[in-house]
Design a binder for these strands. Structure first.
Lengths: 111, 111
DNA sequence: TCACAACATGAAGAATTCTTCAATTCAGCA
DNA sequence: TGCTGAATTGAAGAATTCTTCATGTTGTGA
């Protein structure tokens, strides 16, 4: 089995391994959004958000287009939604019985 | 929206962000395996593999039982399979047209 | 009981990733 | 032209994660 393939998969998951990046992907699930809006909903410095958006762009998970004064981001593929859903299923399984996060995960699944 | 939830999701993806750990999960997809066998198929030092297995155990993605002289690992939940499949779909989309890894991903999907 | 094989653990230096700050680009407008 | 707001970029130190090595544990068989 080829090594670069595992490396590519690992790299891919690693780009998801950051709370701000996860948050961005979940916000983009509902459609394209300008940076300003993302910034509104995620409490983080503008330059930090830009850094994380750059990571997502490099990986190819999101795309950006400039519209006048603002930049609008969107998901590169709707498959991201499936991935996040699969992750939630596992997290739900794993956390079951350990309280705290469980209720939140379930509430979200019911949206 | 609660912060710890995004943190939990990010942590989860980060545990998948390592080639050896990905490899292990994919091998366990086909059923439980003793460490010795995993070691056979993954070219890595024994202690390194142990470290990565420990990460997977801590996260709760895999479980381990001792059977005599050997330790047998298995997936904690079959949902992991869905997750890896969703990841492959996205990778396939993303890499399409840039050669190299694409053929491998597709060959694997056809297994 | 000794010795050996199979795994796990602790710890330290190397490598990677994060956060933050200063500087920069680009568009729209006075 | 000169500002200002929106967003990005580069760089440096802080923090986290990897790899490796030495040591420890557990079971088996002589």
């Amino acid at each position: 089995m080829p090594v670069p393939l595992y490396q590519a998969k690992a790299d891919f998951f690693r780009t998801l391994g950051h709370p701000v990046r996860i948050r961005v992907l979940e916000l983009l699930r509902d459609g394209p959004r300008p940076v300003r809006e993302l910034l509104n909903e995620i409490e983080v410095e503008a330059s930090n958000l830009s850094q994380q958006l750059a990571v997502l762009r490099r990986t190819g998970l999101v795309g950006a287009v400039r519209e006048g004064g603002t930049v609008v981001y969107s998901l590169a593929t709707p498959d991201v939604v499936d991935l996040l859903a699969a992750a939630r299923r596992i997290l739900t399984d794993m956390i079951t019985g350990q309280g705290e996060l469980l209720a939140e995960l379930q509430a979200e699944a019911a949206e």
